[in-house]
């Protein structure tokens, strides 16, 4: 899943830099990448924290 996220981020930024402009598609890819990273965070956050109140 990390590879999928990095591919999206790489394509998004290379598309912006090579074209020299930012389109709605780039904003959409940013949002998609954000959501996938949050899902990945949730998938990895399986252990409880070693602290208690």
């Amino acid at each position: 899943m990390d590879i999928i996220i990095m591919i999206i981020i790489t394509l998004m930024f290379l598309r912006m830099i090579i074209r020299g402009k930012v389109s709605k598609f780039d904003f959409t890819m940013w949002v998609v990448a954000c959501i996938l990273i949050l899902i990945l965070f949730k998938l990895h956050a399986t252990s409880t924290l070693p602290i208690s109140l």
Partner: peptide, 13 residues
Amino acid sequence: CPLCMIQRYFMML
């Protein structure tokens, strides 16, 4: 680690 990578992704974003 996975959390390190997640932080890198958010830095890139």
